[in-house]
Structures are given as C-alpha cells and as structure tokens.
C-alpha cells in the first residue's frame, strides 16, 4: 500500500509523518507515535473513549483516517496537564471521583475540554448531553458531570 505524507500540528508541535492510508487516527496516535493515552473502546464510533480534538472539535479517532489529519491541529490527552500538574478539569475529575478504571477517561476529558471552551457556563443537562456520546461503565457519570460543572464555575469565578 502506498503511504501518504501528512503534516499536522500535534499537541502544539509541528509534525510530519508517512501513513498507511487504511490506518485510523487512533491506531496512528497509539502505535505509530506512541501516544497511548488515547484509548480504543469500540472502534465503531459509539463509546467515545478514543475522542481527540481536531481543529478545535472533538473527533472519534477510530472514525477518522490518519491521512485526513494533513493540515490540521490535533490535541490528545497528553496535551493536558502532567501527573504532577494536572489541568483544572483533570483535577476536578480526581476530586469528584470522575474516574475508576481510567479507560474512558481520556475521551471524556477531551470531549469536555472542547465543550467547555465553547460553552463556559453549562447546566447539568447540557453537560450530560455533551458527554452523551461517551460511555463510562464504572462511575455512573455523576462524578464526571460534577467535574465539568465545577471546572466551568471555577473558571467563571476567576474571570
């Protein structure tokens, strides 16, 4: 199979790569670039675990081919805080017990990261709709929803 060249911005860094046309973005990030923070839960576009941000919008990396990222700006969970310096949203997940096994967490974080940028003051109902494309089997969602609400209100009170 002919490989294609792609040039894109990944977590703030300009990257070039050659990709097999049949590889989806999730596999490309995980197995070609070693960014294993993005997880694959269903590979048919329903569970949302593999969500990354492309050009500011949340995208299921299992439904996007790697060749499609040419010219785009891609953000993964690795662009958020580090273990010793979590982002406010990540910290709110810990505070509200918004994760257990951690497998859906990257997708939840990236979905909410994109959402809160455009919706600074959501209601609980809004947040539940925003993550209605992400499945979590562990938490019952409550801690995740509360984490998003807390992050939004903390940001609002700072500004």
């Amino acid at each position: 199979m002919t490989e294609h060249s792609v040039t894109f911005t990944l977590n703030g860094e300009r990257r070039e790569a050659r990709v097999d046309p049949r590889i989806h973005l999730g596999d490309f990030l995980r197995h070609s670039l070693g960014l294993t923070g993005t997880h694959l839960g269903c590979e048919h576009g329903v569970c949302g675990a593999c969500t990354v941000i492309v050009n500011g919008a949340p995208v299921r990396s299992c439904l996007m081919l790697a060749v499609q990222i040419d010219g785009t700006v891609v953000e993964t969970v690795e662009s958020l805080g580090k273990p010793g310096a979590l982002s406010p949203l990540q910290q709110a997940f810990a505070t509200n017990h918004g994760l257990q096994c951690g497998f859906c967490t990257s997708g939840m974080l990236m979905t909410l990261e994109a959402y809160l940028r455009t919706t600074p003051a959501p209601t609980e109902q809004d947040v539940r709709i925003a993550i209605s494309g992400n499945i979590c089997r562990c938490t019952g969602y409550e801690g995740i929803v509360q984490a998003a609400l807390d992050t939004a209100s903390a940001k609002a009170s700072r500004t």
């Binding site: 923070g37 690795e78 979590l86 994760l99």
Partner: peptide
C-alpha cells in the same frame, strides 16, 4: 481521600495491556 491512582490515569499515563510494546 482522593485516589492515588488518578493523576497517572488522568494524564494518559496508564499502562494498559495494549500499551505494552
């Protein structure tokens, strides 16, 4: 108390079986 597990998992630094190479 908040969980000792969380920081690593939240930062995408978990090590699940498919992350082994």
């Amino acid at each position: 108390v908040t969980r000792l597990e969380d920081a690593r998992l939240l930062a995408g630094k978990g090590q699940y079986v498919d992350d082994i190479d």
